[in-house]
């Protein structure tokens, strides 16, 4: 493989992995608080369409990202009212949110279907972007790529070094105990759900404003579901989420290159297209087989509604 091909594949891998990282890390916080929100696909779709519309009308992609955050949080708030205040089943509410979000996004996005945005230029980090092979791929990227890295480090610090993160993990493990020693379980869960929605919105905005600067119905293409699976198979650990997301991106890009290269290989293209999905899951399942890791990291109360007795 020649050097420029490697660099461009690495570049594309990072870009493809970024929305997954952002969304999955948001969901990780969400689930660490014990709330399972399956509506990621819908929140991403709404984030994508809101970001696209606002960017198109205002010409400012950052206003677009803000709109994506707002849309994601609004969707998450609907889920919060259903699942946290009204104690509805989290799985059912989340599925409903996913279907509702995808449908609503298609509806409000109709006027924008044939519109294109101007590509947002990448941000080049001086000096390190000149590194051979990796410089161009890693340090001449969209701002949201750098954001995903900052999010990762910030989350590591938040979850394992800060008191707020400790409280969050406590709520996810045993809401009854957390309530008994005096923490506002429902409020903390709301904040976690809203954070999950905000990150799903950013992920959607990345897709429609930066990744492919256009809007098309169904453009989220199952990334919300993959992000949800990533969190579980990564046993709720941020580093593994990161690895899994880049793995998915890498396999996706590799198979696209193979399909686009015109190589005459005797392999059905449908199977190649499905490769990223099952390769990611197989690898993550293989590395997460340790029961100890699962037991120490999985939020015990995940998906169980909690009603404090008054």
């Amino acid at each position: 493989m020649d050097a420029s091909l490697f660099t461009s594949m690495l570049f594309a891998t990072v870009v493809a992995g970024t929305p997954l990282i952002i969304v999955a890390l948001g969901l990780l916080v969400n689930e660490k608080a014990g709330v399972l929100n399956l509506g990621a696909e819908g929140m991403m779709a709404m984030g994508a369409v809101a970001a696209f519309a606002v960017t198109h009308e205002s010409g400012n992609p950052w206003l677009g990202v803000a709109a994506g955050v707002g849309a994601g949080m609004a969707m998450a708030a609907i889920f919060g009212v259903l699942a946290l205040t009204l104690m509805a089943n989290q799985v059912a509410s989340g599925l409903a949110l996913a279907i509702f979000g995808v449908g609503l996004a298609a509806f409000v996005g109709k006027p924008y279907e044939a519109v294109a945005l101007q590509a947002v230029p990448p941000i080049r980090i001086p000096f390190i972007a000149d590194l051979p092979l990796i410089g161009e791929a890693l340090y001449n990227q969209q701002a949201l790529v750098y954001f995903s890295w900052a999010l990762f480090w910030g989350l590591l610090w938040f979850l394992y070094r800060s008191r707020a993160g400790l409280v969050l993990r406590a709520v996810g493990e045993s809401p009854a105990s957390a309530h008994a020693i005096g923490y506002p379980v429902i409020r903390i869960r709301y904040l976690a759900v809203l954070f999950g929605g905000a990150m799903a919105g950013v992920g959607g905005a990345f897709l429609s404003v930066f990744y492919t600067p256009m809007w098309a119905e169904g453009m989220v293409a199952g990334r919300g579901w993959i992000a949800l699976a990533l969190v579980v198979f990564a046993t709720w650990r941020p580093l593994r989420v990161m690895v899994g997301a880049y793995l998915f991106g890498g396999v996706m890009i590799t198979q696209l290159f193979i399909q686009g290269s015109g190589l005459q290989i005797d392999f059905p293209s449908q199977l190649l297209s499905s490769l990223p999905y099952w390769a990611t899951i197989v690898v993550l399942v293989a590395i997460s087989r340790n029961r100890n890791t699962i037991r120490l990291n999985s939020p015990v109360s995940l998906g169980k509604p909690y009603r404090p007795d008054a």
């Binding site: 008191r163 993990r169 020693i181 120490l296 015990v300």
Partner: peptide
């Protein structure tokens, strides 16, 4: 001190204590 322990199993002793104390 509760009959059914109100401890968090996946956290350490010091983290459990910190959760119940005021301040940081």
């Amino acid at each position: 001190v509760f009959q059914h322990f109100s401890l968090f199993e996946t956290l350490t002793v010091v983290e459990n204590v910190a959760l119940a104390l005021p301040g940081k």
